[in-house]
């Protein structure tokens, strides 16, 4: 009798083992077949959730960040405070950051929803800075790799770059040509337009 039970137990164990084995191999199959999308998206959302949590716990001076819609981790709403001692001081500029499914391997895009007059912001609000450019854009430009997108960038490092862009516009490769010309040649007009934007952004609060 005892013998019997032992055999049963062994059989059971064996079956159970098979079951477990099957499960895990199914899982690998699943992962392999759906490799790109499912796993990439989940990697992206995990990373974004982590960053969101970190930013809530340890806010960074100069901006605040949250989700546009609580159910979508890929769309962030950011408010950037105009850096002190610049033309943009005192403004509160809202922007939307949209992350791709394969973040962090590709950069998000950033678009101001507040009106902003700046050489490196397109008239429609899209931000044009080198770290938001995909790394593969210029295969031979590896010497500039440090200025382009790499996956080590985070929401925080992107926003800090935008803040530094506000402090020092780059008129070499402007997104808004008019603004760049004005910034270079008619600084007073430029200042006026910027202050108007700052005032508007305060009213919107």
């Amino acid at each position: 009798m005892i013998q019997r039970i032992k055999v049963w137990a062994l059989e059971l164990l064996f079956l159970f083992g098979l079951f477990v084995h099957n499960l895990s191999s199914n899982q690998t199959l699943f992962q392999l077949s759906k490799l790109s999308f499912a796993s990439m998206a989940s990697q992206a959302s995990l990373l974004l959730q982590k960053q969101l949590k970190d930013l809530c716990k340890h806010p960074v001076d100069g901006f605040s960040a949250g989700l546009v819609d609580e159910t979508n981790i890929f769309e962030w709403s950011v408010t950037i405070i105009g850096p002190p001692d610049t033309l943009y001081e005192g403004g509160f500029f809202n922007a939307i950051m949209s992350f791709p499914q394969n973040y962090p391997n590709s950069p998000p895009s950033v678009k101001f929803t507040s009106e902003i007059w700046h050489p490196n912001v397109y008239p429609d609000g899209r931000v044009c800075i080198s770290i938001l450019h995909p790394p593969g854009e210029d295969p031979n430009g590896y010497e500039l790799a440090s200025e382009r997108w790499t996956p080590v960038h985070t929401v925080e490092s992107i926003v800090l770059s935008i803040i530094s862009m506000l402090s020092g516009p780059n008129d070499e490769s402007p997104a808004n040509v008019e603004a760049a010309k004005e910034w270079r040649d008619r600084r007073d007009d430029f200042k006026k337009k910027v202050s108007r934007c700052v005032r508007k952004s305060q009213e919107m609060l």
Partner: peptide, 8 residues
């Protein structure tokens, strides 16, 4: 990602 972007 880099490989799928080309010879870069």
């Amino acid at each position: 990602t880099s490989i799928n972007d080309g010879p870069g």
